[in-house]
Amino acid sequence: MALFLLLVLVAVALGIIGSVAKGLGYLLLIGIALFVVALAFVVVRGSRRAGRRPLR
Rank of each mutant, 00 (worst) to 15 (best):
2 A>H: 13
48 R>G: 13
45 R>S: 09
3 L>K: 09
6 L>Y: 04
45 R>Y: 02
10 V>T: 12
3 L>R: 08
3 L>M: 10
2 A>Y: 11
26 Y>G: 12
8 V>I: 14
10 V>L: 15
17 I>Y: 10
32 I>D: 02
47 S>N: 11
12 V>Q: 09
14 L>P: 01
51 G>C: 08
35 F>W: 02
30 I>G: 05
26 Y>S: 13
33 A>Q: 00
35 F>D: 03
43 V>W: 13
14 L>R: 03
12 V>P: 08
35 F>P: 00
17 I>Q: 03
28 L>V: 00
10 V>E: 01
56 R>D: 02
47 S>I: 10
37 V>S: 07
27 L>P: 03
2 A>S: 14
4 F>M: 07
33 A>G: 12
28 L>P: 03
35 F>Y: 02
18 G>L: 02
52 R>T: 11
17 I>F: 12
43 V>A: 15
30 I>Q: 01
38 A>C: 05
42 V>P: 02
49 R>G: 07
13 A>N: 11
15 G>T: 08
8 V>D: 04
26 Y>D: 09
11 A>Y: 04
13 A>Q: 10
33 A>L: 07
37 V>M: 05
56 R>G: 05
20 V>P: 04
26 Y>P: 13
19 S>C: 09
26 Y>F: 15
23 G>W: 04
4 F>V: 05
36 V>Y: 00
15 G>H: 02
48 R>T: 08
54 P>S: 05
51 G>K: 15
3 L>S: 14
50 A>Q: 08
4 F>D: 02
31 G>A: 01
43 V>Y: 12
11 A>W: 02
5 L>D: 08
26 Y>I: 14
29 L>P: 05
23 G>I: 08
27 L>M: 15
49 R>Y: 06
19 S>Y: 14
41 F>A: 09
16 I>M: 15
46 G>R: 08
18 G>F: 02
19 S>I: 10
46 G>D: 10
23 G>M: 07
42 V>S: 11
36 V>C: 02
47 S>C: 07
8 V>A: 15
17 I>N: 03
17 I>D: 04
45 R>N: 09
30 I>F: 05
14 L>A: 11
4 F>G: 09
1 M>C: 08
16 I>N: 11
54 P>Q: 05
53 R>D: 04
22 K>S: 15
44 V>A: 13
12 V>A: 14
12 V>H: 08
2 A>R: 15
30 I>R: 03
50 A>G: 08
40 A>M: 08
39 L>I: 06
20 V>L: 15
49 R>A: 10
5 L>F: 14
40 A>T: 10
9 L>Y: 04
55 L>S: 11
29 L>T: 10
40 A>P: 01
10 V>R: 01
29 L>M: 11
47 S>P: 03
37 V>N: 00
